[in-house]
């Protein structure tokens, strides 16, 4: 029996899933609802100056990268399984598209955050 390489993808999936389960609803609420609707928070909460300062801080960079990259890897793993579940047999293509997409997203996020 060949040892599975699933642990790599499963670990990223699990980390992303846990992060999303713990703080996902709060993040979506802040960036997608409260700030655009002008609720609860001050109007300049997500202003350019604030977000730039946040993303120039090392902890801020790590946090933003962790959220984007882990969410992407979590989703890539599940979408890959869903396609298998729906009976899509192009296994290699599905893997390349799902994990490749997550990889590209991670690289773009990391590169952009490093430059800031």
């Amino acid at each position: 029996m060949k040892r599975s390489n699933e642990p790599i993808f499963w670990s990223l999936f699990g980390a992303g899933g846990m992060l999303a389960a713990l703080i996902g609803p709060a993040l979506v609420f802040i960036t997608g609802i409260a700030v655009p609707f002008g609720l609860i928070f001050k109007p300049d909460t997500m202003s350019y100056a604030h977000m730039l300062a946040f993303s120039q801080n090392w902890l801020g960079k790590i946090f933003v990268l962790a959220v984007i990259a882990l969410f992407l890897w979590h989703a890539a793993h599940r979408i890959h399984i869903v396609l298998h579940d729906f009976g899509v047999h192009a296994v290699t293509l599905v893997r390349v598209l799902c994990y490749g997409g997550a990889f590209v997203g991670t690289v773009i996020a990391a590169y952009t955050l490093l430059k800031l």
Binding site: G16, A20, G24, V28, T31, G32, V64, V67, I68, F71, L72, H74, A75, A76, H77, R78, I79, V82, G105, I108, A109
Partner: peptide, 12 residues
């Protein structure tokens, strides 16, 4: 997961 991915893309 599809929505998790879409949200991550919006943030990206």
């Amino acid at each position: 997961a599809v929505f998790v991915a879409l949200y991550a893309i919006v943030l990206l």
